[in-house]
């Protein structure tokens, strides 16, 4: 029973939610919606537990004065302050200030660092070791050039070639990825629904 029950629940839940996508969405009444709402609730609960665990772990580090405890202290204070604001004053100007002046600039900073990482990666990728590396180098620099407005002034062929590259070879590759993803998802779903894969089982 301990092995069969999780599989049965998984299969049944998966099938109900899957059937909910067919037709007008009213094949099984409100059951698919109820199950999805339950999953969203569980995910929220798991997130809450994860946050609590993170706060406890870093709080413990800060209290014990372990190395780099200062970072843990900042993390706990920032987390509790943001969490408190969100619970007590949802949609308030204070919470908006945290988003505008802390969260957004920090994320933008991390994204801005990508420019340096990309240059480092280009140094490695642009080394002409094989024929593939030559193709990569030419295509990369050509696409970068084609992205610029000045390319049309240099030659009208450059933007046309860029459009062709995006429309034919790149699209062919993307279609392959999309089809592969769809087939992989289908296979993984069938394996879970039929009980071949049991990521939820208590083994």
């Amino acid at each position: 029973m301990r092995r069969v029950l999780p599989i049965a629940v998984t299969c049944l839940t998966g099938l109900v939610v899957l059937l909910g996508f067919f037709g007008n969405g009213d094949i099984l009444g409100g059951w698919p919606n109820l199950l999805v709402e339950g999953a969203a609730f569980l995910a929220a609960l798991a997130l809450l537990m994860g946050v609590a665990h993170l706060a406890l772990a870093h709080g413990r580090r800060a209290v014990r004065g372990e190395p780099q405890a200062g970072y843990s202290l900042v993390l706990v204070i920032a987390m509790l302050a943001t969490f408190g604001l969100g619970v007590v004053l949802p949609g308030s100007a204070e919470l908006a200030w945290v988003f505008d002046h802390l969260y957004t600039p920090l994320q933008a900073t991390m994204t801005a660092l990508l420019a340096f990482f990309v240059v480092s990666a280009a140094y490695r990728a642009f080394r002409l070791r094989h024929a593939e590396a030559v193709v990569l180098l030419i295509t990369s620099l050509f696409m970068l050039l084609g992205q610029l407005a000045v390319s049309e002034r240099l030659s009208p062929i450059i933007p046309a070639l860029r459009e062709w590259t995006l429309a034919i070879p790149v699209t062919a590759g993307v279609r392959g990825i999309l089809l592969g993803t769809a087939l992989g998802t289908l296979a993984a779903t069938l394996r879970i629904l039929t009980g071949i894969d049991r990521p939820q089982a208590l083994e």
Partner: peptide, 23 residues
């Protein structure tokens, strides 16, 4: 930022040259 992108393209060209000359 148009000129910035143009200058960045130059940096990538330079990276491609250096990646092959320096090693």
């Amino acid at each position: 930022s148009t000129d910035g992108y143009l200058a960045l393209l130059g940096v990538f060209f330079l990276a491609a040259v250096l990646a092959n000359v320096v090693p």
